[in-house]
Amino acid sequence: MKDSKKLILTRREMIVGTATAVTVSLGAGTIEKVESLTINSADIVPSATINFNVNGKAQQLNLDTRTTLLDSLREHLQLTGTKKGCDHGQCGACTVLVNGRRINSCLSLALQHEGDNIVTIEGLGTPDKLHPMQAAFVKHDGYQCGYCTPGQICSAVAVLQEIKAGIPSHVSEDLTLQPEFSNMEVRERMSGNICRCGAYSNIAEAMAEVNSHLS
């Protein structure tokens, strides 16, 4: 604690210094109660190190603890294919695959993904070598403005895997049977990806084509 210095702190915005586990806070404004505490100035914004694998490449990042998986991909790894739409898990634009499962990367802290394998739209295919789902979206006009498309494609890839893995859905009639691909299944399973241009029917067609090549 050689670099420690005295800070005047209010109780307004409380944070906790990791090394010393003392309660401190920052900021100006009305001072309700003043406490004089010792804190390492480097701890004012708590940060931590995360190791994960993104699109097949090991990554180590030191991040503000608040950083979402989405922001770590976009702002720290410059993988801007994954989009920030609502930032509240309501639109699906930020959908990525984590250990093979689709999630909303906006509702996950980067720190929750120690050791995880993350695949973004950049990891599915490249302009020279499109993933079959990307090619099918192009062929069937599965987008208009394109903003929701990376999330739609990641989700669509995962949906086909989920059906194959036997995960049922709200519209599966008999829960004890292996679910089968259908337009209704696609519509239900893709409901977490909103497209304000309304490309839904073309997205469903793109998914049907990729599915027909799988089976």
Binding site: G89, G92, T95, R101, R102, I103, N104, L107, S108, S155, A158, V159, E162, P168, S169, H170, S172, L175, T176, R189, M190, S191, G192, N193
Partner: peptide
């Protein structure tokens, strides 16, 4: 759950989205 507690599977599948249910 799908065989013996279908009410639970049905309720879960009626909630949220595929992405959210994964997490």
């Amino acid at each position: 759950v799908r065989r013996d507690y279908q009410i639970l599977a049905r309720a879960l599948l009626a909630g949220a989205s595929g992405q959210l249910r994964n997490k």
